[in-house]
Amino acid sequence: MTVPPAAEPDQVVLVPHWLTAVDREEVERAVTAALGVGPVHPVAAIHLGDVLTELHVAAAREVVWPAPVARVRLATGWGADVVPVRLSALELASVLSLPGLAPVARAALTGGRST
């Protein structure tokens, strides 16, 4: 697996990807499986670890500040389980590079609600 160079932490832009509970479970499963089976490039492993963190952080944001996302759901008609998962370009690339990622989650990350 090729890994792009690490960027300055303060220049990283996190882009929201609107994922359903099913999509998030699939991303979590694929990332956990990849990290468990290995071998993963150490830098990619860090990014994948950050993706796992982000999945939990996205759930935590829902508890602390539910109102802004609730407004988006109201305006778009998305289901109650759709939550923005904010990923940097590197994190997104490391998830998309996983061969085991189900097409549903891949589509949710690259198109659909995210575009």
Partner: peptide, 28 residues
């Protein structure tokens, strides 16, 4: 800790807490 008056308190390691609060639209 990530403190938003009137809302639940989040507690995490520094970088995780900063990630949580990074793009919060409410004052925290």
């Amino acid at each position: 800790v990530v403190v938003t008056p009137g809302r639940p308190v989040a507690c995490a390691e520094g970088p995780v807490a900063r990630r949580l609060a990074a793009e919060a639209t409410e004052a925290c």
